[in-house]
Design a protein around this nucleic acid. Sequence first.
RNA 1: GGCGUGUUGGUCAAUCGGUUAAGACGCCUCCCUUUCACGGAGGAAUGACGGGUUCGAUUCCCGUACAUGCUACCA
Length: 500
Amino acid sequence: MDKKVRVRFAPSPTGGLHLGGVRTVLYNYLFARAHGGDFVLRIEDTDQTRFVPGAEQYIMDCLRWCGLEPDESPEKGGPHAPYRQSERKHLYYEYAQKLLDAGHAYYAFDTTEDLERMRKEMKTDEHSMPQYDRTTRMKMRNSLSLDAAEVVKLLGDGVPYVIRIKVPENEIIKLTDMIRGEVSFDSSLVDDKVLLKADGMPTYHLAVVVDDYLMQITHAFRGEEWLPSAPIHVLLWKYLGWIEHMPLWAHLPLILKPDGNGKLSKRDGDRLGFPVFAMNWTDPKTGETTGGFKEMGFLPQAFVNMLAMLGWNPGTEQELFSLDELVDAFSIERVHKGGAKFDFEKAKWFNHQYIQHTDNTALAALVLPYMDAVNIAPEKLERAVGLVKDRCHLLTDFNTQAGFFFTAPATLDEASMKWDDNKKQFFTALATALQSLHEWNEATIEASFNEQVAAAGIKKGEVMLPFRIILVGGKFGPGVFAIADVIGKEDTISRIAKMI
RNA sequence: GGCGUGUUGGUCAAUCGGUUAAGACGCCUCCCUUUCACGGAGGAAUGACGGGUUCGAUUCCCGUACAUGCUACCA
């Protein structure tokens, strides 16, 4: 029983990586690290009709950005390669055959039309959605309802077929979920899911069981939406003779949309103005790009921290955790059962915290790609960043909060300046005075400014705001003399000169 | 429709039968700041409903309501 902990994240490469997916990765990663185990990335690409080029690479890029890299993956390889189910296609038939031989599965020859007809004809007020199950399977075309000779003939003629699991009647199927405790299902209500598709590919149900077994997965985390199909998986583990190797399940709560209820979708993000994917995703078919947290200006550490707290908490008041701290603090038992509504404001708060805790040199490097201005001197950016960081929630905020350090404002909030001749005279004198300053720093600039205020017999408060607006364009930003200091003597004077 | 799961302030949430029901985000007020933020101090705001069990239920049980997920040869 002292098996090495092995967990896996098994996405289907069909598009952008949802933040719920990243959270699943995170919990997998934390669990593996805490137990000295392995974290496997397995690509579940069994649906050839949904193949999206680039999606797999994109998923790996997202994991890399988040700092949640797998120990084994299609890219890295590992002892259980290949890690793409499409490349494991040949493995699954054997197990389906085993189930067939044991009478736990059967061939079904029904066409799509047959299935549609059944669903339509069997539909009653009591059963608005008929299933392919114990109540209907004998009415369909399969190796249970047809006589043996006919089945052999159909198979021989190459008639397309699928293999379905034969779900038993009147069994209580129980499983223990690490988050929810014991969950049970009545097998009579479970349908005969397709295991092997007509194209020879397994469905998720067969593939997940076979691969979790073959890859020696010990703990399986997945979204709550999988809970209803868990009995199928338990049955498969049992019928394949591996029940004592079945991983411990944990069905994670859903991440819900902020308004109303329901699963958070890409659409909600578009509608409400926040990202849902980890990184920008461009659909190769439509060319449409959906925004990601990375490009919106999130630090990966903040993104990960925020996700960790969405559905889990340590039971203490600590909210800020490094990845290492999360590894120590995280426990699957403390994951909430109920879904959590995503709160973008709180997400921004986390990012703000991380921005404050990042030193200016590192922050400047992070911020540079988001700046519009060109030819930015690193030292100057570093000083500017230090001055404005406390008012930035996203990396992209620095462009609006610090752009004026590098580029003179295009427009000034003239209404707030209340410009008049007195002010014009004051700033003319100020420009001259500043020009003669030998030492340029916050203190000398303010001293010079004060001298001119006294000489002009004007109230300092009357010219402080105009000075700010001349330099930054509007009523925002850090201390005005500190700004002038960083902008530099030459630029400060030239910005004043434009007004006189 | 059936089945599963869930339900503490607007949001994230603590509580493992006894509390003035924490804390955080957001919101409001005040302070600080010759701008805006940051920061500081306050404030408003919570156990879906009905039954039990118990000396005592937010906490345990049952029911109802509501929500959500699933019910594909998709994952």
